[in-house]
């Protein structure tokens, strides 16, 4: 085992950075060195930002989004259409839809998808809260923006079954050819889904 080249504080910083997605031990070492070199310009504000985020970030009690206020910015925005809820598996999916400006509605973050293999059942994700929001009276449509995977669509069907008596329209995202996609390079499953869900032109 190579001898440590820095003190325990720096080694600890490198170890923690290496736990971030996309960073291995080598890139963590580079990031740590960069932070140390830019101690005043980067490390101090980063440390302060992390401390504030740690203190203030909360999970929205309405939709499960993360924000520094509760209810979150999305839930308190009056310009959004409150009659539509977009159900997503994760906060990353909410952010992706917001980046695309695809829909001006409220959201519901489930916190995962049903996965028997990983032992994730309906009680482990926020399905009950979504169902009670849909029964609230204000909601007219629930859009199930879940992954086009077996786990994602199992979750979508499960939620659809629970919402059948809620009097709301339940829709899901279309599956098929992505923008810029060339048919020759698409897998058979995507092509089959695209043909099955073809629309009038």
């Amino acid at each position: 085992m190579p001898a440590a080249v820095a003190g325990p504080e720096i080694e600890r910083l490198i170890q923690l950075l290496a736990r971030l997605p996309g960073l291995g031990p080598r890139s963590a070492r580079r990031a740590a060195l960069h932070l140390i070199k830019k101690r005043e310009a980067l490390m101090a504000p980063l440390g302060a930002a992390l401390a504030i985020a740690m203190e203030k970030i909360e999970v929205c009690k309405t939709c499960g989004n993360i924000d520094t206020q509760n209810p979150c910015t999305v839930c308190t925005d009056d310009r959004r259409d409150a009659s539509i809820i977009v159900a997503v598996a994760d906060v990353a999916d909410l952010w992706a839809l917001e980046r695309a400006h695809a829909v001006n509605s409220r959201y519901h973050v489930l916190g995962g998808t049903l996965s028997p293999l990983d032992g994730i059942g309906p009680q482990d994700i926020s399905i009950d809260a979504l169902v009670s929001r849909a029964h609230g009276g204000e909601v007219k449509e629930v859009i199930l923006a879940l992954n086009a995977t077996v786990d994602g669509q199992t979750t979508a069907h499960y939620i659809t079954d629970l919402l059948h008596d809620a009097g709301v329209k339940v829709t899901r995202l279309a599956h098929g050819v992505p923008v810029g996609g060339e048919l020759d390079y698409l897998d058979e499953g995507t092509l089959t889904a695209a043909i099955k869900q073809r629309t009038l032109f």
Binding site: P116, V150, Q153, T154, H157, D161, E188, G189, T192, Q197
Partner: peptide
């Protein structure tokens, strides 16, 4: 991939539940 049929099951509740059950 030899036979990519999972996309056939995504739209039908009985098929996707059936697939999950068969795997279990």
């Amino acid at each position: 991939g030899a036979r990519l049929r999972s996309s056939l099951f995504l739209g039908a509740s009985h098929a996707i539940y059936g697939l999950t059950h068969l795997a279990a």
